[in-house]
């Protein structure tokens, strides 16, 4: 019997994940990874390419099943639950703005799909007049004027607009955990900043627990209450509270070098 604190939302214990098992291309991506996420945490995740950041998020979401270890969500063992089963607890926004929305469906239809994330779908109407009012108000919060274009096909929106809609969709039904996988990386700097601000606002207003992967160190420092750094498929640094507030990029780089014994390899991490 496992015992942990009540405030623990997600517990990843000794997670192992390899790709192309049994082939010459076998690669261990998560290597004895352990992470505990507390209720209300907003954690930023940084690390070089191939550190395992996206893979970690995907194992939490159930896209990949782990090879070893256990994942507990709110006290429930979800290690081998399917992606669709976990969808009722987890909201996700992806790096590719095209991935989170159905382009051939209207904005309101996309929201209606998201509104039913936690429910079993039946033969009732896919969208009701009452819901439309909820969506209108939710869209108005984005400040993009989308509340007046609810019957526009999502495919006609820009990347930034689509990402904002996806963010709204991921949080329309309050998720236990929100996973943001480099969700602003494909946007231009101004739009990226806007979507990031919006994410922060939504997370704060709804008291969400969130995990955000980013390649931008400054963003990782500025947002959230906790910062974890990954390397070689495990967490090598976990900073929170006052210590995180005082962090600078130089500190992070130094810490990375001392913990990992190497240099941060990618420029994009620095330049963001």
């Amino acid at each position: 019997m496992l015992i942990w604190e009540v405030s623990t939302l997600l517990n990843m214990m000794h997670i192992e994940k390899s790709f192309n098992i049994g082939t010459i291309n076998e690669k261990k991506v998560l290597n004895d990874l352990s992470l505990t996420i507390n209720d209300g945490d907003f954690i930023t995740v940084i690390g070089g390419n191939g550190a395992g950041k996206s893979t970690m998020l995907n194992t939490i979401a159930g896209v990949y099943k782990v090879d070893g270890g256990r994942i507990l969500l709110d006290g429930q063992d979800i290690t081998y639950k399917s992606e669709t089963d976990r969808a009722q607890y987890i909201g996700r926004v992806f790096q590719d703005p095209m991935m989170g929305t159905a382009p051939t469906m209207m904005i309101e239809e996309n929201l209606a799909m998201a509104y039913r994330r936690t429910k079993k779908r039946g033969l009732g109407w896919g969208i009701s007049a009452k819901e439309r009012e909820i969506y209108r108000q939710a869209l108005a919060q984005l400040g993009l004027g989308l509340e007046d274009r609810m019957s526009t096909k999502v495919g006609l929106l820009s990347g930034g607009q689509r990402q904002a809609v996806t963010l709204l969709m991921a949080t329309l039904q309050k998720p236990k955990l929100l996973l943001l996988d480099e969700h602003t990386a494909a946007l231009d700097p101004a739009t990226s900043a806007k979507v990031l601000e919006l994410s922060d606002k939504i997370i704060k207003e709804n008291n969400l627990t969130a995990l955000m992967v980013t390649h931008n160190m400054q963003n990782a420092i500025d947002y959230g209450n906790r910062l974890v750094m990954m390397n070689g498929g495990r967490i090598i640094l976990d900073i929170s509270g006052e210590e995180k507030k005082r962090l600078t990029i130089e500190d992070l780089l130094k810490k990375f070098e001392s913990v990992s014994g190497g240099k941060f390899t990618t420029d994009s991490v620095l330049l963001g």
């Binding site: 992606e83 209606a112 039946g122 896919g126």
Partner: peptide
């Protein structure tokens, strides 16, 4: 126009999105 019908359309439009929203 039903919930299941919308799930069919969403699956045809973007399987990844449908799965992330709990559609089998």
């Amino acid at each position: 126009g039903t919930e299941i019908g919308c799930a069919v359309r969403a699956t045809g439009s973007n399987q990844n999105m449908a799965r992330s929203l709990g559609v089998r």
